[in-house]
């Protein structure tokens, strides 16, 4: 994965060690990172580099320092958590609609909005398209867990 990055995990960790947080939050690699855990597994100094990437994404997003590519990743992950808060389990259609809707409002890209739309029919043919997602019975406890974890409205 590091081959695709503007700064490999070693460089990101070095910036953090030097206290250069702003520079670390500006590298595009934190958004290219796919959490494959390879850097954490291979670090000879046992640094959890993938965990450092998580922390930097969180900081960059909170401070509004995320790049456009980074914002798309965060919008997706926030929509994912919001979905879980509401249903307790992932509702795929609802997630896709929210993610696409939110990115479309910012980008106004019809190409983005309808990208992969053709997959719906193909999924349906394979009985993989479930229009109504599952919900857990005790949704109230899920809501309370989110509140107590500090992810109530922010999720």
């Amino acid at each position: 994965m590091a081959g695709r990055m503007d700064a490999p995990p070693t460089k990101v960790v070095r910036l953090v060690q030097l206290g250069q947080w702003d520079a670390a939050m500006r590298v595009e690699s934190i958004w290219q990172c796919v959490s494959c855990q390879t850097c954490s597994a291979r670090c000879p100094k046992l640094v959890d580099c993938a965990g450092v990437m998580d922390a930097l994404r969180q900081l960059a997003f909170e401070r509004g320092a995320a790049s456009p590519a980074g914002r798309a990743v965060m919008v997706f992950q926030r929509a994912f958590l919001e979905n879980i808060r509401r249903y307790g389990r992932l509702n795929e259609i609802d997630l896709i609609a929210r993610f696409k809707g939110e990115v479309f409002l910012k980008s106004r890209s019809l190409a983005f909005l309808f990208r992969d739309a053709g997959l719906a029919g193909q999924l349906h043919k394979r009985r993989k398209l479930h229009l109504t997602g599952e919900k857990v019975r005790d949704r109230a406890v899920v809501e309370r867990i989110f509140e107590r974890a500090g992810a109530g409205g922010a999720a």
């Binding site: 997003f61 867990i145 974890a149 500090g150």
Partner: peptide, 25 residues
């Protein structure tokens, strides 16, 4: 019975406590 989502990548990227709480439940 009544299992909930583990939080996946979204929880460990955005909220460390939630990333423990959801699987813990």
């Amino acid at each position: 019975d009544d299992w909930i989502c583990c939080g996946a990548t979204a929880a460990h990227s955005l909220n460390h406590k939630l990333a423990i709480a959801l699987p813990a439940r």
